[in-house]
Design a protein around this nucleic acid. Structure first.
Lengths: 203, 203, 203, 203
DNA sequence: TATGAATGAGGGTTCATTCAT
DNA sequence: GATGAATGAACCCTCATTCAT
């Protein structure tokens, strides 16, 4: 199994196949749900044999991990850059919400797959996590951003942990909104979220 | 199958067994995850044969439905009464959050099982819902409460739908907090949530 | 188990229950097929508990045996008397066909249940027969009737065994005809059968 | 599942395994009865895992369908050709009976499996048929043959439907004769059947 | 008498995984 | 690189049967 023996020495073709399979997994998960996303179903969608999936991924867990990775990559593509460009903590939070909403809007499949997968593989006591929370930009990062904003006097009084957690929940809410109603106006939804968080963290 | 022949005329003993099995299902779901909660695993926990579960429940869906019911019952026991007793919309929201946090705190297993089950059975396009969202007290109810508060001039300017959605997310957040950290101080968490929502909806 | 301990000392009520259950079994078998006729389904139809069936019958085989018996009894009620009243072998055969057709016509449920049950319990090498062929009045009896008719010079030349076998098949054909087409004119069908057999066995 | 992806593009080896499994199913059905022919039992006889059967057949119905097909193929191999070669209707009927008897004689397992399967899957009101009656060469075909013979003046007076039905019953009778007595002289049995039908349909 | 409750064996089916080619 | 074939474990479910009450 290449993926185990020389993790960094993969062929281009290799890499392409992997990406294709992950892509198909994302689609199946988003459209039919995580529970329905069997290897057979994914392979069928990729129009390859079931064993091809096992040739490229050591086991299903690795594929799921890559799905999470792929979604994480895709969603976080613009985020750091844009947040860095933003002025203060308030602006950064606004930009984060808007960017994520924009991403979800343009990549509903990825977003929904990420949420589905994340929910189904959430760390339960005893169950090991595969990767870090992909879609939420990291609760801890946000918490720190908020705490620093408070320290700088830019933000008002509130519990940074709770607000950071609710930020992650807001991200999920955007995706859920998209899943429930394919015609939902996510931009407007995001605007209202920004307004809400702004009211919470303003001095 | 009693559950088919006389759905409303169940024996005490019958009902007791059903409750016991539902209880075991709740525990397995909470501790090992919905996907791991096979009938075999649940029966094993109840220390009965697999077929006993089928004797008391027509099929797995009925059992899952009862799990959702049980959680819903348990969580909603005090909520309506307390909310009715509360003064205005702000107070009602505060009471709701505090009551739910109190419930989750005292019934972490139930709360987590509810969230797990709810996530796994969430309506995907094409998938039918069994029962209404149990843990969240109904987004629509909250939205109406908020909208009426605004109409009365009691509350400020904000999008009632978005805030209602975030209220549901807050409820989930409480449960997740409890799941992630068994020692989490949910009362404090709830207090901060109340503060946050209060800032959002105040005039 | 009464039915085992004192086979001839059954209560009236006992006997009535048995008959009722057998009757329900007949109906279920005829309407839904032998394979679908589980004890649960039969008990449900009789509006009694599944265990009641086991109280009155040692096991399922005994119930099936009784079904075969009941059908046999019902179908053979008039046959011997009418055949005895008939003149020669040709007349006896005619009367037999007509009587059976009449019975099937008036008791399609019984007839179909008999055929279904008989087919499913037919003696395979290794499998023991429960009772003798109920619906067909006995191939051997017919063979003897035919052979004696030949010996007496009343009938022509033909193989009594083959014709007897085909007589049994004719009986089944009547039932099948009724099963396939609920509006089939069995009387006419029987008339044609009589004509056919008459041509075969006439001198 | 090959059988789903490319139904007409099966490998040789694939086809061989399918044939082997069908063959084993035929044997189990013939020797132990249709009701006893579970996938486990069939797989056991084929000396493969139960899941192998599911790899080659989508479900049990497809396997049963193939059993019916196989029996049908085998039994009808020579029939059309030989009947076409026969002169008139009387000759065709004679050839049909003799050919079928010959087939049953040389393929008792197939014949019995066909009869068992056919009986168990016979259309009850509400039950769908998988394929057409395999073993009986089609009642309707025979009826037409007879009616045309009558129209041509080649045959005498009789009900073509009833005689066609009895022809099918004769075919079953041959198989049953073989099942009841492994040493039965089917050739002689067929000869007598031919004589019988000849007497019926001759002018 | 009657039955509610329980059970183990077995049913068909799906699945992730392995392996020879 | 790729895959067809096979597998065993586990899944949900049905069944005839038993037994205490």
């Amino acid at each position: 199994m290449r993926s185990k023996n020389r993790p960094s020495g993969r062929t281009f073709a290799d890499e392409a196949r992997r990406k294709q399979i992950v892509e198909c997994a994302v689609e199946v998960i988003a459209e039919e749900g995580f529970a329905q996303a069997s290897l057979a179903r994914i392979a069928q969608r990729a129009d390859v044999a079931k064993s091809v999936v096992h040739y490229h991924f050591a086991n299903k867990d690795e594929l799921v991990e890559q799905v999470l990775m792929a979604v994480s990559m895709a969603s976080a593509a613009l985020l750091p850059e844009r947040m860095a460009a933003a002025g203060g903590a308030r602006d950064k939070l606004r930009v984060a919400i808007e960017t994520i909403a924009e991403f979800v809007d343009g990549n509903r499949t990825y977003a929904l797959a990420g949420l589905e997968t994340w929910n189904q593989t959430r760390s339960l006591p005893g169950r090991l996590r595969l990767v870090e929370d992909p879609a939420s930009a990291g609760v801890e990062d946000i918490r720190r951003l908020l705490a620093e904003g408070q320290a700088r006097g830019e933000l008002g009084e509130f519990d940074p942990h709770v607000v950071a957690v609710m930020f992650r929940q807001a991200v999920d809410a955007i995706t859920l909104e998209a899943a429930i109603d394919p015609n939902a106006d996510l931009k407007a939804f995001a605007t209202q979220l920004v307004a809400m968080f702004d009211r919470v963290i303003s001095p």
